[in-house]
Structure formats: C-alpha cells, structure tokens
C-alpha cells in the first residue's frame, strides 16, 4: 500500500504544478447517447500534435448523487476539457474514474481528476500491465505530443480494483463492472449503465479504427461471445462512433478477429511463415478500417505466435 500512496502523493504534487499552468479551457463536445450518458468521440488516428491525442472515446454517467467518468483520453489537457464538459452539465461530485484498460489513450488524462478525489477504478491486472510498460508509454507520449504535455501526464494507481464483478452506485443509478479474461489486453473492464442499458465496452469493441491485439485474440473472441450475450440497448465502443446498437455493434470487431485467426490458422496448416502472415493475414479486411496498413501486420505477427501454441 505504501508505494502506491507515495506514487499518489507524487502524482498530486505533479498535478498541482501542472494545474498552475494556464489552461486553454474549451469543454469537449459530447453527445448524450442515453439519458444522463455522455460520450466524446475521438478521431480514428494515432495520437499526434494536431489531434492533441484525442483518439479514443471518453464518457461519463451522471446519477442522482454522483458522476462516473469512463476513460480519460491521451493527455491531461484533453481530460481537463472533458472535466469542463462535465461541469457544464452538473456540479455533482465526480466519485469514480474508471479505466477500461491500461492503454495510454484511455488513461493519461487521469491526473486531471485528482482534485476531485474520486476512486480510480480498474481491472485487478491493470496496474502491473501499466507499470510494465510505463517507460515506453511515457516516451511515446513525449514523441507524440511533445515534452511539455508529456511532463504533465501522471499514471494514477487504482484505488479500487475489480477481479470479477462489482457494482457501483451513482445515486439510484447502479453501474455494473465486469473484469474480463485476457482479450484486447489482460485487463479489460466493461461498464454497464443498467438504467439505460448502455454498455461501455472499452476496447473490446472497435469500429472504424483497426482493433489491436495486445492480449489474446482467442481470449478476445471468447470474451465477445459472452459480452454479446449480455442484454444492452447500445454499446459505446472504445474507438468508433459515440454509440451503436447492441450486439450488432460488435460485428466489425468479431469479423476482423475471426478473419485474422482463420487466415493465420489456414496459413499455419500449410506450413506458411510468420513473414507471410504479416502480409497476407486478414488482407480482405483492409477496406473496412483506418490504420489497417499501420497495425494489421503487427496483429498478424502477434496472433501467429499465439496460435502456434493452440
């Protein structure tokens, strides 16, 4: 517990320094996808200076007593704008900041909420997965957004972790958290707003931007099997539109993963090499996705190595 407290205090100090810098306040545009459920849509691109790291979806749910934030974007500046968007709509306390997994485009804004003293909520595997990559993530943030912005980013350790399931209450508004076995990453967490049937799927569901495999492709397909059986009116994908009907909203992700796995299995059966997989696997999916050329070869290499042990 002690190292975490130290990190938290360090993070708070860092944030106060960052907070004293002039902020270009402009509330992020958000869409109310269901009563009291708001989503900001990120662009389907890599984080860079021109998009300021606004590349993943972020959302918040307003209950009768409190607010829950779901994912905080790729930078503190962006998250401050998200916070402004919340404050335009409510003055209720921000009680929870939930991270759907440890990727930088979903967590680097956490520091913007430290003053609200929320519980930071994540999957039980979140912290070890994040800390194993922290140096690389920090370096990449510096490359993508510049040293000034990267210096302000803090990695806030979770104060509440979920190993299986957990329910939170925003005041007459229960939200259900489910921790999944390794899929997109080894720490995927979904959030269901029962009141409106809105499922925040994090990066277990992608649209438009090519899914990336950083956990297990087969595990991901198993997760989606169960997830699509959960009744919901709509899904908020980690990347893609603000919301989509459920379970149809998972169709693109399922099709891509099934194609990738199917192509690689077929290739392995005929003795094909990992080099060939990086060129040929899931080639039929190219037209459907942004960043296909950038990320598909790597997915193919990752999944090839995974399937060798099937």
């Amino acid at each position: 517990m002690l190292p975490n407290m130290k990190a938290l205090i360090g993070a708070i100090i860092l944030f106060r320094i960052a907070g004293s810098l002039p902020a270009a306040a402009a509330p992020l545009p958000v869409e109310e996808v269901a009563a009291g459920v708001f989503v900001h849509v990120g662009v389907a691109a890599y984080a860079d200076r021109s998009n300021k790291g606004d590349v993943a979806n972020m959302g918040f749910i307003i209950g009768a007593d409190a607010v829950a934030v779901i994912d905080t974007g790729n930078s503190p500046a962006l998250a401050r704008d998200l916070r402004d968007a919340i404050r335009q709509r409510t003055s209720l306390p921000i009680r929870y900041v939930i991270n759907t997994h440890m990727h930088p485009d979903h967590v680097f804004g956490n520091g913007a909420f430290l003053d609200d003293r929320p519980d930071f909520v994540a999957h039980a595997n979140y912290q070890s997965a994040l800390m194993g990559r922290a140096d690389a993530y920090q370096r990449r943030l510096e490359e993508d957004l510049g040293a000034e912005e990267a210096d302000k980013a803090v990695m806030v350790p979770p104060t509440l972790t979920v190993g299986d399931k957990r329910e939170l209450d925003l005041g007459g508004r229960p939200i259900e958290l489910v921790a999944w076995p390794a899929g997109h990453t080894n720490n995927d967490l979904t959030v269901m707003d029962r009141t409106t049937g809105t499922l925040f799927a994090g990066d277990l569901v992608f649209q438009r931007r090519l899914p990336t495999v950083d956990g297990s492709a087969l595990g991901w397909l198993r997760d989606l099997d169960k997830l699509t059986a959960m009744p919901a009116a709509r899904v908020v994908p980690g990347h893609g539109p603000a919301s989509a009907p459920w379970p149809d909203g998972a169709a693109d992700t399922l099709r891509y993963l099934n194609t990738l796995v199917g192509d690689i299995r077929a290739l392995q059966k005929e003795g094909g090499t990992i080099e060939r997989a990086s060129v040929e696997a899931a080639a039929s999916e190219r037209q459907h996705w942004n960043l296909f050329d950038e990320d598909n070869p790597r997915n193919a290499v990752t999944v090839f190595a995974e399937l060798e042990w099937e």
Binding site: A129, G132, R133, D135, A136, A182, T185, N186, D214, G215, S216, G219, G271, T302, E308, W309
Partner: peptide, 27 residues
C-alpha cells in the same frame, strides 16, 4: 525497444506452459 519490451501479453498462461515444446513437421 525489443529487449526491454514488457514480457508476455498473458503472463499466467505463458508460465503455465514453461518448457513445453512443439515440433512442426512437413506433411
């Protein structure tokens, strides 16, 4: 970054099969 890249996307599974081998022979 290949040497310092974090180990294993799925650590539990990887350690469970430590030392196991596979031989793929042509048909």
């Amino acid at each position: 970054g290949g040497c310092s890249a974090p180990a294993m996307k799925n650590p539990e599974q990887a350690m469970a099969r430590l030392g196991k081998m596979r031989m793929n022979l042509p048909q």
